[in-house]
Design a binder for these strands. Structure first.
Lengths: 236, 236
DNA sequence: GCTGGGGCTTGATTTGGATCAAATTTCGAT
DNA sequence: ATCGAAATTTGATCCAAATCAAGCCCCAGC
């Protein structure tokens, strides 16, 4: 027996690009089978290789996507509210390529994958939104590949900082929203090297105090980092 | 004045997953604005940053997708017939993230992007096919990222060879379908290092003679490469 | 307040891979 | 067939980053 979701959850989900333009009835039937759950930190939500039974939505907290091979692990992305993850696996009804764990206490919605696929065929707006979202995801991963293959780790860090700065409204000071060891893994380096990389960026006007970053010489950092919209912009 | 495409081109395109299930009329109107052209080798078809005016289909020959930053260049993928490329940019009406050049004499179809987007809204089958295709592309790039971040260059080469072997019907001998320096770039290494890597794989039963690879000790190579369907399979 | 453990930093060392330079092979064009 | 340019290979060297090993700091829990 389904009890129905709180209005606050519903409206948050509804505001996602993925759902905002779709028909009310269709949204309703998607939400019919959806349930929302609170998870403590460090809970593994899905493991790579699992059947993709649900599309996930992070309503609050944060989730790390990571992958393993041969006893090595790499952080692939961090999902912040409000967004979905593992859309592609859901669409293709294929096993997850990445695992997911909560980083902090998180509120998460689970939408049955078969419902997503069913409503896709009924609602053209929803189909359009899914395809737009997937294309965006694809392009992010391509940008990430370019970052990895074309830049050194120091350049990746410098550009990461510039992106974070942009995200926080071009302030000269901002907080890292990621533990450093996770950031290291995201950037494809070791924690030790990240630490040294921060030191190296001092000469380009980057101060670090714990999670607090201040950029004291914007021009100098940008001259070194050479940010490129075709790698570093979110929206394009 | 549009002259219409040769039947052979039409039927080849029609056989693509992307187009095979769509309505005849809709396929027709897509093809209305499409033109097909033969290109010599080494022609730059598109440059990253360009407006995505067309969706491309390689009918014969081959095309390399590559990216540049700060005077460095990296090969991102090779497109073999019959497949499309830069679908995501077309869908989002966003600038290309990658450049493309012909590797050999190639026959290529150009479908106006606005027609693709228009027909998407009319034809649910086509919409379904696009979303499936995009999800597949997304998953390939994720697998590629895992390959890059979790494996050493030697491991990447070993697994690349096993994938090629699978592609060529599990024969113990097969041809590299890529110039070595391009392969090096695809695998994220220098040509010099690729050469040394091939030498290192001798001890795991890999013989190299020009473009001809023979795998003399399958078990040994697999033991070293540790292939994983969540990185190395095409279809999943 | 202590205290213990995890995360972060620092230093020393090793290793993988890049770069530079040159020899060799391959292959297309004449 | 021969020439020349490009690709590949090989060797020497350099550099970036991983690893190993302590030590420090922060703060969560007693």
């Amino acid at each position: 027996m389904h009890l129905g979701l709180p209005d606050s959850d519903l409206s948050e989900m509804r505001s996602l690009h993925l759902f905002e333009d779709m028909d009310d009835t269709h949204f309703g039937s998607l939400m019919q089978g959806t349930y929302v759950q609170n998870f403590p930190p460090q809970i593994e939500l899905i493991a790579e290789g699992d059947r993709s039974d649900f599309l996930y939505v992070v309503l609050s907290g944060s989730v790390e996507l990571f992958s393993c091979w041969n006893r090595r692990e790499s952080s692939m992305a961090t999902i912040l509210p409000v967004s979905t993850f593992i859309l592609a696996a859901t669409i293709r009804d294929a096993p997850y390529l990445m695992s997911a764990r909560t980083l902090e206490k998180s509120r998460i919605a689970l939408i049955p994958s078969q419902d997503v696929r069913a409503v896709f065929d009924l609602d053209a707006q929803f189909a359009r939104a899914i395809v737009t979202e997937l294309a965006l995801c694809y392009r992010s991963v391509v940008k990430n590949t370019k970052d990895l293959k074309l830049r050194t780790s120091l350049e990746r860090l410098a550009n990461y900082l510039l992106r974070q700065q942009r995200y926080s409204g071009m302030a000269n000071e901002f907080e890292l929203r990621l533990e450093k060891r996770r950031l290291a893994s995201v950037l494809g380096m070791t924690p030790e090297n990240l630490s040294r990389a921060f030191k190296n960026l001092k000469s380009y006007g980057v101060r670090v105090d714990g999670n607090r970053i201040s950029i004291t010489d914007q021009a100098d950092l940008e001259k070194f980092a050479k940010p490129d919209p075709l790698i570093d912009s979110y929206s394009i």
